[in-house]
Design a protein around this nucleic acid. Sequence first.
DNA 1: AGCGTTTGGGAAAGCGCTATCTCACTACGG
DNA 2: CCGTAGTGAGATAGCGCTTTCCCAAACGCT
Lengths: 347, 347
Amino acid sequence: MTDDAVDTRRTAPATLHDVAREAGVSLATASRSLNGSTRKVNEEYRQRVLAAAAKLNYSPNLSAQAVARGSTTTVALLVADIADPYFSQIAAGVVREADRERLIVTMAATDRDPERELDLVRTLRGQRPRVMILAASRREGDPNDDALAAELRAYESNGGRVAFVSSADLPFRAVRLDNRAGADALGRELVGLGYRRFAVVTGAEGIRTADERLAGFRAGVESGGGAIERIVRPDFTRDGGYEGMTRLIEDGLDGIELVFAANDVMAVGALSAVRDAGLTPGTDVAVAGFDDIPTARDVAPALTTVRIPLEEVGRRALRLALGEASADDEHPVHTEVVLRESTPRRG
Amino acid sequence: MTDDAVDTRRTAPATLHDVAREAGVSLATASRSLNGSTRKVNEEYRQRVLAAAAKLNYSPNLSAQAVARGSTTTVALLVADIADPYFSQIAAGVVREADRERLIVTMAATDRDPERELDLVRTLRGQRPRVMILAASRREGDPNDDALAAELRAYESNGGRVAFVSSADLPFRAVRLDNRAGADALGRELVGLGYRRFAVVTGAEGIRTADERLAGFRAGVESGGGAIERIVRPDFTRDGGYEGMTRLIEDGLDGIELVFAANDVMAVGALSAVRDAGLTPGTDVAVAGFDDIPTARDVAPALTTVRIPLEEVGRRALRLALGEASADDEHPVHTEVVLRESTPRRG
DNA sequence: AGCGTTTGGGAAAGCGCTATCTCACTACGG
DNA sequence: CCGTAGTGAGATAGCGCTTTCCCAAACGCT
C-alpha cells in the first residue's frame, strides 16, 4: 500500500470472465449474450449478463476480440496533411461513413513523403485493418512505388482491401477524380469568358494530380485558341501558391490575363500575393483554382474553381474499399466548374 | 479449388510462429529478436530471424501484442468536426506528436453532439488506448457530463490518461486556451483603434468557448468605454456566421462599428455576408474573429483575430496526456492579438 | 414407450503474441 | 576436478476473447 492516491488505484478493467462470474453463467454464455452471436441464449440469462456488464462497467477488449475473431473493425486512412482542407474534408467523409458502419478510423499523415507513406503502410498493416484508404498524393514514377504495391498486394492477399483516392495509378481500387476533364472544362469556360493568355502555378513535375490538371487545362484553353505562356512549379501548398504568383509578378506579368493554380489552397495564396503586390485580383489578373474548398467562396474576390465533392469522395472511398460500392460509385467523381468573381467576364 | 483468381488466394498473414519455424529457432527467440526485449539474443540467431521475417513479409499483429502485453500504442482523439480548420489543425498536431512517439491515432467526430461524444468515448475505450484526447467543444451544464466524467474516471483508473483541449471544465488534465484573456486583449486593442460600438456573433449560450470569449471581449471593450450593443447566437459554424451577420444587417446596423465573431470560421462567413449585403467589410463595418485559422490572412480584408497556435495545442495535448509535459506545457496556451485590415484604425 | 432431434449451457481449444520459468551449457575460482 | 554462477535458448503459461465441441434436457414422432 505505498499508493497514497485517494481513489486512483490502478484496477484492471473488468474482463468478460468477471462479468460471467458476476452473472453466474459461463464465459461462453456471457460472450454470446454481449455480442451478436448466432446462438440463442435464454432471455433470463442474457439479462443477467447485461446487468452484470453494466454493473462492472464492462467494455469488451477490442484487441482481444480481434485476436480471437481474426478480424478487426478498423479502417486505416493515409493522407498527406490533415490540416489541408482538401484532405481534412476527405477524412471527414471517411470518418462519417466509417461511423455508419461502426468502424474505427486510424489516421496517419505522410507529409507528402513517399518513404513515410511506405513506412506508414507497413506500420498500419500491423493493425490488420479491414481496409486501407490511401489519399496521400502520389508522384509519377516514384521509386518506392514497387515496394508500396508489393506491400499492398501482400495486405490484400491477407484479406485486406485497399482503395486509393486519386487518378489511375497503381493497380488497385480507386475513387477516380477526373482532374483532366475538370481542368479542361475550366479552361474552356475561361476562354469563353474572353481570356486568352494564361499562366499556371502548379506543383513539382511528377505530382500526378498537378500534372493531370495542367494537361487538362492546357487542352481546354488551347481548344479555344488560348495559350499557356508560363508555368511555375513551387510547393503544392498555400505558401507555394503565394510564392509562385509573386514570382510571376516580379518577372513581369507581360500580358498574362489569368493564372490557374492547380489547387484552391495555392490559388488562395496566389490571391494574397496579387494583393500584396499592390494589384487587384480579378481586375489586374484573374485567378482560378481547383477543388472548391470551403474557403473558395469566402475569399474576395470569390474564387473560380472546379468543384469536387470531397466529403463524398471520402465516403465513397470507404464504400469502395468495403466492397459496397453501388454502380454509381464506379464512375469517376463528377466535377463541376464554378465561376465566381475572381474571373470576371473580359470586356 | 473453386478459386479462379490468379494469385489472390487469401493466405493468412505470416505469424511469429511461421517466422520462428523458417528461422529454425523457438518462438521465444523470434519474439525477442523482433521486438526490443531486454534479453540478449545471439547475433547469428537474430539475423536469421530478421531474414526470415523479411522473407515472409512478417508484420507483427498489434492486437495480439496488445493482448499479450496488456497495453497498446494507440491514441484516441475526439473532435467535433474534422473538416473544421480549428479541429483539423489540432488533429494535425496530435498526429504529428503521436508519430514522434510511434503511437497510432484513432479519430472520431462528435458532430457537436454530447450524446455521441459519450458514445464514442465508450466505444473508444474498448481499444484500451494509452491516452484519450477530447478536443470536441463542450457545453455548460450538459446533462451527459456526469456520465462522461464517470466513464473517463473509469478509464483512468484502468491506467488510461485523458486530456481535454478546452478551458477548465471537467476535473481532468487539460490544455487550457485562455479564451477570456485573449478576447479581453482583443477588445482593448479595438477600443484603442477607436471602436466603441460593438456587436457579437457567437454560438448558442452554453458553449463554453463561446461564452468565455464573449465575456472576455465584453470586459475588454467596456474597460475602454466601449459597449456591446447586440448579440446574436446562430450556429457555431461558417454558415452560422454568415446568417448572424445577415441578421444584424437586416435588423439595421444602427451605428455598430465592429462585429466580433467568436471564431474565425464564423468571422469569415460574416465577412461574406457583409459583402453580399453590398457593404464593404472594414469600411462600412469592421469584423474580428478568434483562432487565426490559416484562411484568416487570405480573406480580403485580412481578418483581425486572436492567434492560437493550434497545431502546438494538439502536440501539447498529447504530451500532457502522456505525462511528458514540461513545465512550459502547464501554463495556459499563449494567445496573441493579430490586427489586420478588417479592423482599420478609426479616424 | 422408444428413439431421433432440437435446444442451449458449459468446457476447452485456440487466436498471435509476451514473459516467466526451466535447464543445458560454459566459464571460472578454489 | 568439482561446485557455483552466469548465459541464453526453448518450453510453456497466460492475455481476453470467440467458437467449436460435447452433452444433458426437452420435444416431437411413430
